[in-house]
Design a protein around this nucleic acid. Structure first.
Length: 704
DNA sequence: GCCCGATCACAAAT
DNA sequence: CATTTGTGATCGGG
């Protein structure tokens, strides 16, 4: 089997076999303990639904406050002090799930590994805030639930235009959670936003007629989340937004809107005006730099920002002088007040180039303002913002990576330019900035599954009959039928939803290799690096920002059977490179909350794995980048079983996808699961579980 | 195969 | 409720 592809892979053009590197043992996982287990007991509940163990504490108003940089213009905000457990509506259909199970269960980034090479510490706590216009947000809670009339849309797009009236959807978020967020809530909102957006894209892609097509799924998804109150940090605030971390990336303006980082859906300047008569002056809260013409500064801590206004509605450029009003006035006042302004920098996506990524670059202060004469002769306001020191690198990381890619500077700690020796179409470097270890334990780089003897897999089924490429709307395509009637990927190759089992087109399908239903077979597309972590051996991360739902890599290696697995275990051999579908994996939710899309009839929302046979892969001797992905109980990557035809059999594959947007240089992790207890108990002697060092508050303490 | 500009249909906050 | 704010996808030319 293995049809045609080389079994004993020898890297091309290698004078010596560079894929076999020196023999130093990698540490995947180990080291003593994660002590925080006692101080941070595992959440028995599923935020945002449940209560926190000690009542109601993780919310923002109760974080230490004002200790750091609060400017003096803040009147102490009246804290809402809920006395009991918060009134979190609990959806009845949701069965209790083991902790660590839900996508919004990821309160912190894997392990603060992001940007470590740039010397930035992760921004964990640092909660501080200033409150303006103390009462400004109070009254909002009751607004907007009243039904809203939506103008009729042309065409039949109405299946997706469910606004307001929210027939059968009860927001899972309490009013408090809508007002003030935390990391879990932010992740929860973002996961739902993108899942909804992808689903809308999927529905639209399948439409035959171009009539009534929704071109802006992002706006539609955003609108639904707004009206159904699946949003957080609605209370406007200066400075830190709880749950949003410096370096976080966004792919749509609506995402920043939904998590309270930047409220306006279009305008570049967010500002707030005090309500009381005392202070009518607006203050700037956040700005979005489009990354166009403002970024002529080389210093990544300085931003020259142009004011708003003066451009004639939708046409042309400057036609009038900008006025000192609204956002411009707010920035001017912020210069006087010296308050912090959140800065979001728009940058081009390296992966897609037609899309833009928004990088939250933390807090800045306005240092200067002046006016300039624009090209058309009109006055434009300019503001010089300087970054508040002590924050982890964010935009600076992007700039550094840009230089690596352009060859203007070299990657520090580089051990090997490409550990795949050209096997992948894009190099994977090996980097160590931590210690002196200069090589990996020997293994052969091979990008696929390898069957050492004839496995009996699954009886053959049939491929599709599509000729050029399978098209989303084609209900005759049997591969689409197997996927429940929907094309599993969006037009740009992003996975729409988690599935029990994903069916891709295989070699026996007559459609071209360009068919969009072959995403997981196309190899690594991201610029990855294997790097030495501080305490968990080698790990994997990406120079490119990774969009939620993006395919990352397949778990490659030698397929072994259960007997072999047991042997490995008993020999005490290191089997830390095993992937085993037979382990117990916590279920978790990645698809959107049912009910967000009314008229959604597809009950294809089951996300529990349904795997036709047990697949065990050892990547100890043979494997690809996947073997370097470490475990986390709060991962940013999940695995998806994928089935396709091969040599008259259906063979199963393990494909990794991004749970959420992953900023560059953030370590990639997935949940290794746990051996079933029966197998664990069979061993007399201590079962070889690994102490987990993921550092998440949801940490189970061990894995494997 | 890419990069640029033009075009078009839209949402939130006030 | 009208106004103020670009954005994101797509398409055609150079």
């Amino acid at each position: 089997m293995e049809g045609g592809s080389s079994h004993n892979f020898v890297p091309p053009s290698a004078g010596f076999d560079k894929s076999r590197v020196l023999d130093v043992k990698p540490l995947r996982s180990l080291m003593p303990v994660f002590p925080a287990a006692s101080q941070a007991p595992p959440f028995p509940c599923m935020p945002p639904f449940g209560q926190t163990p000690n009542g109601y504490s993780p919310f923002y108003p109760f974080q230490p406050q004002g200790s750091q940089t609060s400017p003096n213009l803040n009147s102490p905000s009246p804290m809402r002090t809920p006395t009991g457990p918060m009134p979190a509506p609990i959806r009845s259909y949701r069965a209790p799930v083991p902790s660590g199970a839900l996508p919004h269960d990821f309160p912190e980034e894997s392990n603060g590994e992001r940007g470590s090479s740039m010397g930035g510490a992760e921004d964990d706590d640092g909660y501080f805030d200033a409150h303006l216009g103390s009462s400004s947000s109070r009254k909002k809670t009751t607004k907007a639930s009243s039904s809203r009339k939506k103008k009729k849309k042309s065409g039949d797009g109405d299946s997706l235009t469910n606004n307001g009236s929210g027939v059968n959807f009860v927001s899972v978020m309490s009013p408090f959670q809508v007002e003030d967020g935390n990391r879990e809530l932010v992740n929860y909102v973002l996961v739902n936003f993108d899942a909804l957006r992808r689903r809308i894209c999927q529905i639209e892609d399948a439409k035959e007629s171009k009539n009534g097509i929704i071109k802006r799924a992002d706006l539609k998804a955003g609108n639904i989340l707004m009206t159904k109150k699946v949003r957080t940090n609605m209370r406007r605030r200066i400075g830190v937004v709880p749950g949003v971390e410096v370096g976080d990336v966004f792919y749509f303006r609506m995402e920043m809107c939904a998590v309270g980082l930047h409220a306006p859906s279009m305008a570049g300047i967010d500002y707030m005006t005090g309500k009381g008569d005392a202070e009518k002056d607006p203050v700037a809260l956040s700005i979005v730099s489009s990354g166009g013409y403002d970024d002529d500064t080389e210093d990544s801590d300085v931003l020259i920002y142009s004011g708003q206004g003066g451009n004639n509605n939708n046409k042309d450029k400057q036609v009038a002088d900008q006025k000192l009003e609204r956002g411009n006035l707010a920035l001017e006042r912020s210069l006087n007040h010296g308050n912090e302004v959140r800065v979001i920098r728009g940058v081009r996506d390296e992966v897609n180039s037609t899309t833009k990524v928004y990088v939250y670059d933390g807090l800045y202060k306005v240092h200067e303002s002046w006016t300039e004469r624009g090209k058309s002769g009109c006055n434009i306001f300019k503001y010089k913002l300087v970054r508040v020191p002590g924050q982890p690198g964010a935009f600076a990381v992007w700039q550094t990576i840009r230089k690596w890619k352009d060859g203007f500077s070299s990657r520090a700690g580089l051990v090997l330019q490409d550990l795949t020796s050209g096997t992948e179409s894009i190099p994977v470097s090996l980097v160590n900035e931590v210690d002196n270890e200069k090589a990996l334990a020997s293994f052969t780089y091979f990008p696929k599954l390898k069957y050492s003897k004839s496995f009996t897999l699954m009886p053959p089924s049939f491929g599709c009959n599509c000729h050029n490429a399978c098209l989303p709307g084609d209900m005759n395509c049997s591969c689409i039928q197997k996927n429940g009637g929907s094309f599993p990927y969006t037009g740009n190759g992003i996975l729409v939803s988690r599935k029990q089992l994903l069916h891709e087109c295989g070699p026996t399908c007559p459609c071209s290799p360009n068919c969009k239903n072959r995403v997981s077979q196309t190899g690594v597309k991201l610029r990855l690096e294997v790097f030495k972590t501080k305490d968990r051996g080698w790990g994997l991360r990406s120079w490119d920002s990774i969009r939620a739902g993006s395919f990352i890599c397949e778990y490659a290696g030698e397929v072994i059977d259960e007997v072999k697995l047991k042997q490995k275990g008993h020999a005490g051999e290191d089997d830390e490179y095993i992937f085993d579908t037979g382990r117990n994996y916590d279920s978790f939710k990645w698809n959107y909350e049912p009910g967000l899309l009314e008229e959604e009839t597809s009950n294809d929302t089951n996300e529990d794995y349904n795997i036709p046979y047990r697949l065990i892969i050892s990547a100890k001797n043979v494997g690809n980048v996947s073997r370097f992905i470490n475990h986390s109980c709060s991962p940013n990557v999940f695995w998806q079983p994928v089935l396709y035809e091969h040599n008259n059999q259906s063979s199963l594959h393990i494909a990794f996808f991004a749970i959420r947007h992953i900023p560059p240089m953030t370590e990639l992790t997935y949940d290794y699961g746990n051996s079933s207890s029966s197998e664990a108990d069979n061993d007399n002697g201590p079962h070889r579980k690994n102490k987990c060092l993921c550092g998440s508050s949801k940490c189970r303490g061990y894995f494997g």
